[in-house]
Nucleic acid binder design. Structure first.
Length: 297
DNA sequence: GCACAGGCTGACA
DNA sequence: TGTCAGCCTGTG
């Protein structure tokens, strides 16, 4: 299976981070990223940033990573957010006056935001529209196997936008892309003609960065916010999906608010790290729904 | 058979 | 400015 035997092959991704198995699972498989497949109880395997990775949770709750294809320690540390002080960012959120957020913190202590590659994040979220996480992962696996660069151990890199620009819509539809195939083709054509199009997302003024994404076919408010948050380190982005809309309308008692209004509420109420709050609320809303189903079912 | 899933688009009021 | 049907596919 290629699992390394020597402890020194494994990189601790952030010495300040300790997670429970539940939060570890939420971080890797909760919808921020579609790159990871569970291999056993406390381990995942996948491809990100052009390398294959194995990710595991140690007995002490540290996340450790190993790349059989030569992925770099600094890259995976940045991926897991080691460059940001998430303890301080979390503490600066308005949990003292917000009991819903406080409950979400208690349910998922240590949850943070991944820093993925912008291009991969964009592809994943264009594919995500009205699909469930397992289906999105299946589509991306198909795209990688068919159109992505081969890596070691049978893995394939996520196809780049340059790769995708050479593919026609029919090929994508064969991989169960459905109506998203046209969006992928048209976006690939734009990005192929402007290879540095996504480079400014991390540094441009927020509204400019978002406008760039919104100009791409298949990218609306929700997907643009997801790419900015999970693929560009823009923690002020506040994606409003059905789960966030549900918890804001119910727990925050904003029953008749439109999606746009809810997003503005989130940006203002939670502030600079609104997206971090969003991720806690998202995980909490889904967990509560699951618990409710288990009880009633 | 039918509704709906972690949306976007274009048309129309 | 807001609302709504249509779009692909898989699942329950």
């Amino acid at each position: 299976m290629g699992w390394p035997l020597m402890a020194r092959d494994w990189t601790v991704v952030d010495s300040n981070l300790r997670l429970s198995p539940r939060v570890f699972q939420e971080l890797l498989d909760g919808g921020q990223s579609f790159s990871w497949d569970a291999v056993g109880e406390r381990a995942y395997a996948g491809v990100a940033g052009g390398h294959a990775w194995q990710i595991r949770l140690s007995d002490s709750g540290q996340i450790e990573a190993h790349s059989p294809t030569g992925g770099e320690a600094l890259w995976i540390q940045r991926y897991f957010g080691a460059e940001k002080d998430f303890a301080a960012l979390t503490d600066a959120l308005p949990w003292r006056s917000d009991p819903v957020l406080r409950s979400a913190f208690a349910a998922f202590p240590g949850l943070r935001i991944l820093r993925q590659e912008a291009g991969e994040t964009l592809l994943g979220f264009i594919c995500s529209s009205t699909k469930q996480i397992v289906q999105i992962k299946d589509i991306l696996r198909r795209l990688a196997r068919r159109f992505g660069r081969p890596l070691a151990d049978g893995f394939h890199a996520v196809p780049t936008w340059a790769d995708l620009a050479a593919i026609n819509e029919g090929d994508l539809r064969e991989e169960k892309m459905g109506y998203r195939a046209r969006f992928i083709c048209e976006t690939a054509e734009i990005l192929a003609g402007a290879p540095d199009y996504l480079d400014g997302l991390a540094d441009l003024p927020f509204t400019e960065a978002k406008a760039r994404l919104l100009a791409l076919p298949g990218v609306g408010e929700k997907i643009a916010d997801c790419v900015l948050l999970f693929g560009a380190g823009r923690l002020e982005a506040f994606p409003v999906d059905t789960w966030i809309a549900k918890i804001l309308r119910e727990a925050y008692r904003l029953p008749d608010w439109s999606t746009d209004a809810l997003r503005r509420f989130g940006e203002i109420h939670f502030g600079e790290a609104a997206g971090l709050a969003q991720q806690f609320l998202f995980a909490y809303a889904r967990a509560e729904a699951g618990a409710g189903k288990a009880v009633s079912g």
